[in-house]
Design a protein around this nucleic acid. Sequence first.
DNA 1: GTGAAAGCGCTAACAT
DNA 2: ATGTTAGCGCTTTCAC
Lengths: 297, 297
Amino acid sequence: VQQTIDELGYRPSPIARALVRGRSRTLALLVSDIANPFYPQLAKAIEREAWLKDYVVVTCGTDDNVRQSRRRVRRLVEQGVDGLIHASVGDDEETVLGLVDPARVVFTNRRPRRSDCHYVVSDNAAGARALTEHLIGSGHRRIGFVGGPEYASNARERLSGFRASVDAAPGVSALVAEGEFSPETGAKAVRDWLRGEDPPTAVVGVNDSVAVGVLEAVLDAGLAVPGDIAVAGFDDVLQTASSILGLTSVSQHVDEMGKRAVRAMLRLLTDPDRPEPIQEIIEPTLVVRRTTAAAPR
Amino acid sequence: VQQTIDELGYRPSPIARALVRGRSRTLALLVSDIANPFYPQLAKAIEREAWLKDYVVVTCGTDDNVRQSRRRVRRLVEQGVDGLIHASVGDDEETVLGLVDPARVVFTNRRPRRSDCHYVVSDNAAGARALTEHLIGSGHRRIGFVGGPEYASNARERLSGFRASVDAAPGVSALVAEGEFSPETGAKAVRDWLRGEDPPTAVVGVNDSVAVGVLEAVLDAGLAVPGDIAVAGFDDVLQTASSILGLTSVSQHVDEMGKRAVRAMLRLLTDPDRPEPIQEIIEPTLVVRRTTAAAPR
DNA sequence: GTGAAAGCGCTAACAT
DNA sequence: ATGTTAGCGCTTTCAC
């Protein structure tokens, strides 16, 4: 029997199967912007793990725009995706949860406000504390933090970790700026601070993109890194560029995060009415490189 | 009537529709490695254009591995994707064309061997010539080229463009190395050349990743860029990092490429039995930055 | 245990 | 023009 099946090259049709079973073996991944170096790495990890379990994944960029997010999600749900991994960072939590059964959503990279949701995130505050303490330990007493947009939970957590460490260290003061997750934000903040009274001797970017902007502005000002100003980022996703730039950063272990997000999703799909939410927190790791190598003067 | 439709919140099911019509409004995108900075930018452009036309896109990494490519494509075809945009660069042309109707495949980034296929690619040879002539014009007489794997058509074209320009310029000689599309390949080639008799005064990487490795090895050797050795890449996809690195590169206009690949695909799907293949070539643009700023000594 | 029948939600071809 | 019916390829249930 099996012989004849092979000979005729028969292959069951996933579409027909999906229609009757209500399961398509398709997962959706929502990201803010695929071109932002953090997300491709996450997407890769997710795709790899999903394919291992024979799931196909559709990746969509939301541009952190609620309208766009809604359109995408609505379409994906109709399309019959089995679950949604929500890794973008826009202010669309309510919108999305209104469109798709929360039991089929795993948040990652961002932590949901609602407490009964599933998520796999890293401990951003702890990462920021480790980084800040490293700077304080290197002798810095005036440290700048260039944050992200207010709506991004990961940016808020990093800022609060930074604040906690600064407040706990006597004699250390902080400068804080906010903006988009872009190099321009980092560069602008640094230029402002350098024009001011008491510029920082170390600057933390809320992610690596911001940190690159910081780096650029510091070097443009004719200052040495880390001699005059130390610089650090967050995410550690610059890959090849980070070795040459020597940028100190905090690794979120994206691969692990992606893998665990998929596994969480599959557990949810296997038994949909589990009593309590899956909520995992991954400890980030500080990666010290040249841009924070030495103490100031 | 329409009122009642809205009131009941009725939405047609794409799955059922797909089953009966044989069209799913889903496109597949094959890339070599999503984490390689070139592909996310392409994927973003493709996704944007596809969504505008209400198509969903599934992106898959092949790791340039024929087996994996076959598995992915087979699954995607069963899944009922309407078309395949093939942007990965592995040696899987025959395999893929055996699995899916060539009239539903658009090659991009890579140029197919078969002449009757649809493609949207950039003129890699012309880009390499422009870059090489720029270096020769800057006074370089000994130029290294760190190439990619033999199976990659884009790498072969870039190399042949390089060769053509070198051969056309009297007194200019070339050094050529081959390897993977990775910084390590670039770094290794440079270290080898620097140990040799007559090292180059300029080195071209087959893409930006390789060029970053080149840059790293040159700086590690204590040499100045571009003072001692000029460095250039290809693709111009380092974004934020390229401004700070100041890496000269050749832009392939990825956004345009992606957009046109999708449009080609949709034209194919609209009228499947068009007489002749869609074959578009985009002219790349040389972007000169600091790493090739001045002539040697 | 094996085999026939109903139906998933839609579209296209048909008959009225 | 409108209404009806068959059937896409599968799974699941029900009868045998």
